[in-house]
Design a protein around this nucleic acid. Structure first.
Lengths: 226, 226
DNA sequence: CGCTTAATTGATCAGGGTCAATCGTGGTGG
DNA sequence: CCACCACGATTGACCCTGATCAATTAAGCG
């Protein structure tokens, strides 16, 4: 069932030093306390079906959450980068798996501790709620992408999304493989590759190497992403 | 922009009697007060871009939430039936539109009133949070469906989903048109229709009429939905 | 420097979309 | 009461996008 390197036990990648961030700004009481954990590339953070006892904030690296079909087909729900929070789930059981795309440093929060926090501070509950709605909005956008867009539109939207997260907006560094991109967009690696090549031939992007994309004509991309 | 009958102003369909449900069970303090509103079939409840001031609970009828692309392509995010709550949104602006599939009775709640409630009662915040996570889980399942499943799998999953909501689980009554089903599953009406016909030819379902489906072989459906 | 794995490119195929004709049904009015 | 109409659903013929299968190239890495 597990398609990842199985050598990564939680214990191995765990660097369990509790991080008390006393200097945390007051608008983030929620994140005042947590445990720093470290993962190598392509490791499982948690799996669908696991009991939900923690959630995470990304300090560095990129995380993907995904679901699997019986025959191995995979749908990546979302990518999370520095500052993003993931690992909320309805009920007590994980509805998605989470895996590291690159080497990652995360902060792990015990759900129960945060529940206690929320009991004492309504603002914390408010903040949790907002983060859940944020995830919901992303998932809804993703549905539109998956259900109603063609390959070129999907890839264009994907590039623009990552350009937005990148500081040097013209040069996008992709942390993930073509397989990851395909599984996020509901395409095969071949189609992703061909579409990128076509965009390059059209002079809309440039591909110095497989993991870097220079956006030459953002407007054309936006037209495609419509 | 508005593809629906434009004759339905909020005022028209509004039957603004405040509903104080004193006998409401204690586990639902959130829903203790609201305003009953009534809508005809195929009317807009709210539109993408509207300011978010309310959310809704379905008393009777079916509601769809959806997003549109510039050229009219539509993706239905979810259907809501009796007891479901919809209309949460991150920020102050609607990210989806909501429309009635059938004639509907809803209860409308002012966000602000509920915020006040939540300030006094942590359990209310908790409940809001759970409902948001519920929506998130549904959206994630939907992404997997849209991104990684074929037409037959999509239709089978759809039928099973509605069989679950129906009391007479063998006989599923579809409240929505083929167009709605297509826009939910990321298919055309023709493909939906063809797939249903094929399932009937295979002896898996029976179609007494366009809006009713009898499930003859649930197991085969579940195999398809995998 | 060869080995392994990821990415690209090409040839072919199939699932689902598009366009168009027909069928069915429910509503309306003569 | 029934003929007609309008609209939704079904069915058929054909096409196109993206998947599949296969070969080649490129890029880390020991």
């Amino acid at each position: 069932m597990n398609h990842l390197a199985t050598s990564a036990t939680p214990a191995e990648s765990f660097r369990g030093c509790t991080a008390w961030m006393a200097a945390q700004p007051p608008q983030e009481p929620l994140l005042a306390a947590g445990t720093v954990v470290h993962f190598a590339e392509n490791r499982e953070v948690f799996a669908e079906g696991d009991e939900t006892v923690t959630f995470f904030k990304v300090v560095s690296g990129v995380v993907r959450t995904c679901k699997f079909l019986g025959d191995g087909r995979r749908q990546i729900e979302a990518f999370y980068v520095e500052g993003d929070v993931f690992g909320f789930d309805a009920g007590t059981e994980r509805r998605v798996s989470a895996e590291t795309v690159s080497e990652c440093t995360l902060i792990s929060y015990r759900r129960r501790n945060v529940d206690n926090l929320a009991r004492n501070d309504v603002a914390v509950g408010q903040q949790l709620f907002e983060m859940a709605l944020q995830s919901l909005a992303r998932a809804q956008d993703h549905c539109l992408l998956l259900g109603r867009r063609g390959a070129a539109e999907k890839v264009a939207a994907f590039l623009l999304d990552w350009a937005g997260r990148s500081d040097a907006q013209r040069m996008v560094r992709l942390a993930m493989s073509r397989q990851d991109i395909g599984d996020y967009l509901g395409l095969t690696i071949e189609t992703v590759s061909r579409t990128l090549s076509q965009l390059e031939r059209d002079g809309i992007i440039e591909l110095p190497n497989a993991r870097q994309v220079r956006l030459l004509n953002t407007e054309a991309l936006e037209d495609l992403a419509a």
